[in-house]
């Protein structure tokens, strides 16, 4: 009895699936797969090699400082970094007074001690990077209806995040003729910029790094667009996960110990079973 019921239930699901399959297959055969501009022209991030990559990766602090400079002088006008506190910049190799000076260079929200009104004050190391806009509405109004995302986690919030940021910054170009021909509606509208590394190809952010020498590096590195893009990507990888280096450095001793302990456990297992495995 139970077999008959189960076979009937099985047939119920089977026929429903077969019906879905047939309808889907017929539709697919007739219409094919609709091609989209994103599918045809979106590109995966370029290769980017950073010192922090790989199982032995360590941050290149010189590069992080350069990247921070690019963030401060270029990106921070529109993009916040709200999960990063100024105090964490000491991890980039800045001294305490330097961090104090950097923090004081940013205006953070505060209260007037006499009137209690909202105002701004110079930042201190315990403050977090301030948001460049008071709220989302202000951000939209100032940016052609697009909200510039906070960058604290941008490298973790995108596939292959560091390379994504780098590719986006260096990927601006004119829309290819083939795109305009095949998908006229995908042409960048007013205030949009074609960038094949952006998921929907059209980015509301104007190319932020326009020319070599846009920032002047203190360490004498030539500030090409390429170099600045790499540096700021490296900085944002750090900002996304400041504990990355400690994580990798902790991993090796842990794995080493586990390997040692597991070998011992195996030997103990073998010795305990020695007289049970084979015939006496």
């Amino acid at each position: 009895m139970i077999r008959i019921i189960s076979i009937l239930v099985g047939l119920f699901f089977g026929v429903a699936l077969a019906w879905s399959f047939v309808v889907g297959a017929v539709t697919f055969a007739q219409e094919g797969k609709p091609e989209t501009a994103e599918h045809a022209f979106h590109e995966y991030p370029k290769d980017l090699h950073l010192a922090s990559d790989g199982a032995f990766g360590k941050f290149d602090r010189q590069q992080l400082q350069r990247g921070f400079q690019v963030y401060k002088e270029v990106c921070s006008a529109c993009h916040g970094l709200k999960h990063v506190a100024f105090r964490s910049l000491e991890q980039l190799g800045y001294t305490e007074p330097e961090v104090k000076a950097i923090a004081a260079g940013f205006q953070v929200p505060g209260l007037d001690p006499n009137t209690g009104e909202q105002t701004t004050r110079p930042g201190v190391p315990t403050d977090y990077f301030p948001a460049p806009f008071a709220n989302d509405i202000a951000a939209r109004a100032a940016n052609n209806n697009a909200i510039p995302p906070d960058l604290s986690l941008i490298t973790k919030a995108r596939h292959d995040g560091g390379a994504y940021v780098y590719s986006l910054l260096t990927g601006y170009q004119d829309p290819p003729a083939a795109l305009l021909q095949e998908f006229p509606e995908a042409a960048p509208g007013t205030g949009l910029y074609y960038n094949p590394y952006f998921p929907n190809l059209n980015l509301a952010m104007a190319p932020p790094l326009m020319s070599d020498g846009q920032v002047t590096y203190g360490d004498g590195t030539a500030a090409t667009v390429e170099q600045m893009s790499k540096d700021v990507s490296a900085f944002l990888v750090w900002a996304g996960e400041p504990t990355l280096e400690k994580r990798k450095q902790t991993g090796w001793p842990v794995l080493g110990f586990l390997l040692f302990a597991t070998v011992l456990a195996y030997l103990a297992y073998r010795s305990i079973w020695a007289h049970k495995k084979a015939k006496h």
Binding site: K248, T262, A265, Y266, A268, Y269, W273
Partner: peptide, 22 residues
């Protein structure tokens, strides 16, 4: 004893993901 060994192998794989590809 056998479970101890199995646990060790499990922890190695788990920690490899945890520390290097979390």
């Amino acid at each position: 004893a056998k479970d101890g060994f199995g646990l060790g192998v499990f922890l190695i794989l788990y920690c490899a993901v945890l520390f290097f590809a979390p």
